Amino acid sequence: MSSPIHVYSEIGKLKTVMLHRPGKELENLAPDILHRMLIDDIPYLKIAQEEHDAFAHVLRQQGDQSIIS
C-alpha cells in the first residue's frame, strides 16, 4: 500500500515536519484581525489542539518519525 500523503519541497522529499501545537495564543486573537487570517471566528483552543494532535498522529502513522510537535 502506498502512502496517501505526498508532500515534497521544491527540491526534494521533506525530511522533517515542524508543527506548533496551538496554545494560549489563540485566546489572544482580536476579532478585528480575523479577516486577515481568513477565519470567521476565534478558534476554540481545545478543538484546535485535538485537531493538531490528530494531524500529528496521522503523520506519525505514515512513518514520519521526524515530527517536531
Results as ranks from 00 to 15, higher is better:
residue 45 L to D: 03
residue 36 R to N: 11
residue 57 H to N: 09
residue 63 G to K: 00
residue 37 M to K: 10
residue 67 I to L: 12
residue 19 L to K: 03
residue 58 V to Y: 11
residue 5 I to S: 11
residue 28 N to L: 15
residue 46 K to G: 10
residue 31 P to R: 09
residue 12 G to A: 12
residue 63 G to M: 08
residue 26 L to K: 04
residue 12 G to Q: 12
residue 19 L to S: 08
residue 3 S to I: 14
residue 25 E to Y: 10
residue 58 V to S: 10
residue 61 Q to H: 03
residue 24 K to L: 05
residue 16 T to L: 04
residue 44 Y to H: 09
residue 22 P to V: 15
residue 66 S to C: 05
residue 37 M to R: 09
residue 54 A to C: 01
residue 24 K to W: 01
residue 59 L to Q: 04
residue 54 A to Y: 01
residue 31 P to Y: 06
residue 46 K to E: 15
residue 50 E to F: 04
residue 49 Q to D: 00
residue 2 S to M: 10
residue 55 F to N: 02
residue 19 L to R: 05
residue 57 H to F: 13
residue 9 S to D: 14
residue 45 L to H: 05
residue 41 D to H: 04
residue 4 P to I: 14
residue 40 D to I: 02
residue 36 R to A: 09
residue 63 G to A: 04
residue 57 H to G: 02
residue 20 H to V: 15
residue 8 Y to C: 11
residue 13 K to G: 02
residue 64 D to G: 00
residue 44 Y to R: 11
residue 60 R to K: 15
residue 39 I to W: 00
residue 15 K to F: 02
residue 45 L to S: 02
residue 63 G to H: 03
residue 30 A to S: 13
residue 62 Q to R: 08
residue 8 Y to I: 14
residue 4 P to Y: 08
residue 16 T to M: 07
residue 59 L to D: 01
residue 33 I to C: 05
residue 40 D to T: 13
residue 40 D to E: 13
residue 57 H to E: 15
residue 3 S to T: 13
residue 66 S to L: 08
residue 27 E to T: 10
residue 22 P to Q: 09
residue 28 N to S: 13
residue 6 H to I: 14
residue 53 D to P: 00
residue 68 I to G: 06
residue 61 Q to T: 06
residue 40 D to Y: 00
residue 31 P to V: 15
residue 6 H to P: 01
residue 43 P to K: 05
residue 50 E to V: 08
residue 23 G to F: 05
residue 51 E to F: 06
residue 8 Y to P: 00
residue 4 P to T: 10
residue 39 I to P: 02
residue 42 I to K: 11
residue 68 I to L: 12
residue 30 A to T: 12
residue 53 D to T: 07
residue 19 L to N: 06
residue 21 R to I: 07
residue 30 A to N: 09
residue 7 V to Q: 05
residue 4 P to E: 08
residue 19 L to V: 01
residue 17 V to R: 10
residue 49 Q to E: 05
residue 32 D to V: 02
residue 35 H to I: 00
residue 33 I to F: 04
residue 23 G to D: 15
residue 68 I to C: 07
residue 35 H to L: 06
residue 64 D to W: 07
residue 35 H to Q: 13
residue 5 I to R: 08
residue 47 I to E: 14
residue 31 P to L: 04
residue 66 S to N: 15
